[in-house]
Amino acid sequence: MSGIALSRLAQERKAWRKDHPFGFVAVPTKNPDGTMNLMNWECAIPGKKGTPWEGGLFKLRMLFKDDYPSSPPKCKFEPPLFHPNVYPSGTVCLSILEEDKDWRPAITIKQILLGIQELLNEPNIQDPAQAEAYTIYCQNRVEYEKRVRAQAKKFAPS
């Protein structure tokens, strides 16, 4: 494992614990031996107030490669969400998460999670990743928002 990646992720964890947006979660997972795995984080993004996503808490896994922060983490909703920019596998399609697009090593975990929260309610229809959600979003916004509200209710924190 890269010392650069681990040191950056340790800084990220410290900064997150000191200050993070209300309702968001970002925690490194534990290895079988109980030690912390900084390369694999369990996160959760709350649906934004005043949107059909409100009330939901959407679980996301963030996986970092050894060359982080040169390369972005892979962000994957578990379980996958109904959304035009979420692949059926759950992987998020967002330009700041793509090395050859808008990724920059200075982007923080907090910025990534806030960017994904923004994307939930403002899909990028130029870059669809899920045919069904994309089609319904474009053709029947009322039905799309109904499905999103049902999903938010399903993923409401207990």
Rank of each mutant, 00 (worst) to 15 (best):
C93Y: 02
Q139H: 11
R61P: 09
G50F: 11
R147T: 14
T135A: 12
M62E: 02
P105R: 05
T135Y: 08
Q11E: 11
L60W: 04
K59H: 14
V25W: 07
P88Q: 15
G50W: 05
K14W: 08
I107P: 03
P46F: 06
P32M: 14
P46E: 07
L60G: 09
S158K: 08
W16H: 04
N121G: 08
T135P: 05
F24M: 10
A129S: 06
A152L: 00
G55F: 15
F22H: 08
Q126F: 09
L38E: 07
E54C: 03
D102H: 14
P84Y: 02
I109T: 07
K18W: 02
P21G: 04
A150I: 14
A129Y: 06
V25I: 15
F82E: 05
F64C: 08
Q139D: 13
G23P: 04
L63K: 13
K74E: 15
E132A: 10
K146T: 13
F24D: 12
H20C: 05
L63M: 13
L9W: 06
A131K: 10
E99I: 02
C138F: 08
P73M: 15
K48G: 02
G115L: 01
E99D: 15
S158L: 12
T91V: 15
R13C: 01
K14P: 01
G115A: 06
L38T: 09
A10P: 04
Q11W: 11
I45K: 01
Q151W: 02
G90D: 06
E98G: 15
I116S: 11
G47Y: 10
A15K: 14
K74I: 15
G115E: 04
V142N: 15
S7H: 07
K30G: 09
D33R: 01
Q11C: 14
R61I: 09
Q126A: 11
S70M: 10
P105M: 09
C138E: 15
Y137P: 01
G115I: 01
W53A: 01
L81Y: 02
I96Y: 05
W16Y: 06
L38D: 01
W41F: 06
Y137A: 01
I107M: 12
R147D: 01
A133Q: 03
E122C: 13
R61A: 10
P72C: 11
G115Y: 06
Y134N: 05
T51P: 03
Y68N: 01
E54M: 12
Y68I: 02
F58C: 05
E98K: 14
G90W: 01
D66V: 07
N124S: 06
P105V: 08
R141T: 12
V142R: 14
W16D: 01
P80W: 13
E143I: 08
D100E: 08
E12F: 02
P69S: 03
E54W: 07
E42T: 12
A129C: 04
R13T: 01
T108Y: 15
A10C: 00
T135V: 14
R104P: 00
P128D: 04
A10T: 11
N121M: 12
Y137N: 00
K146F: 08
G115P: 04
I125V: 11
I109G: 05
I107T: 10
V86T: 00
P28D: 06
D19F: 12
L97P: 11
S7L: 10
P46Y: 07
S95H: 00
K110Q: 08
K48F: 11
N37P: 03
Q151D: 04
P80S: 10
N31G: 07
P88C: 00
E122W: 08
L97S: 09
C43Q: 03
P32E: 10
A152H: 02
N85F: 09
G55Y: 14
A150E: 10
L94V: 15
I109C: 07
W16T: 04
F22R: 00
F64P: 06
G56T: 00
K30C: 04
H83S: 02
M62A: 09
N85Y: 00
Y137Q: 06
D127S: 07
P52I: 11
G115D: 01
A131R: 05
L6I: 05
R17A: 01
V27C: 14
L60Q: 05
T51L: 01
G115K: 00
K74G: 15
M36Q: 03
P21Y: 04
E132G: 11
G34R: 09
A44E: 13
Y137T: 10
K101G: 09
I116C: 15
K49H: 14
E12K: 03
L6F: 10
S70Q: 07
E143A: 12
K101V: 13
W53C: 03
P84H: 00
T108I: 15
D100W: 05
G55K: 09
R13S: 02
L38Q: 00
L113N: 05
K18Y: 03
T51H: 07
V92H: 01
T29Q: 07
A44H: 07
F82I: 04
G55M: 12
D100H: 14
V27K: 13
V142I: 13
K14C: 15
P69T: 00
I112F: 15
D19N: 07
C75H: 04
Q111T: 13
E143V: 10
I125L: 10
I96K: 04
G55D: 14
C138K: 13
L119D: 04
S70D: 06
K154F: 04
T29R: 14
I109H: 04
I112V: 13
N124F: 08
R61G: 09
E132Q: 09
K48W: 01
P128S: 13
L57A: 05
T29I: 10
K74M: 15
L97K: 01
W41C: 00
L119P: 01
N31W: 10
L119G: 02
E78Q: 11
V25K: 09
M36V: 06
R17S: 07
P80D: 12
K65N: 15
E99L: 00
V25G: 06
D102K: 07
K18I: 05
Y144A: 00
G3Q: 05
Q130W: 13
S95A: 04
A131Y: 11
P79N: 15
P28S: 05
S71Y: 10
R13H: 05
D66K: 09
K101M: 08
T35A: 08
G23F: 03
V86K: 08
N37S: 14
I96P: 01
W41M: 07
V25M: 10
K48V: 04
P69K: 06
R147I: 08
C43T: 15
V86Q: 07
P73E: 02
P128L: 00
L81I: 13
N85M: 10
K30L: 06
V148L: 06
D66C: 12
E78Y: 07
P28K: 06
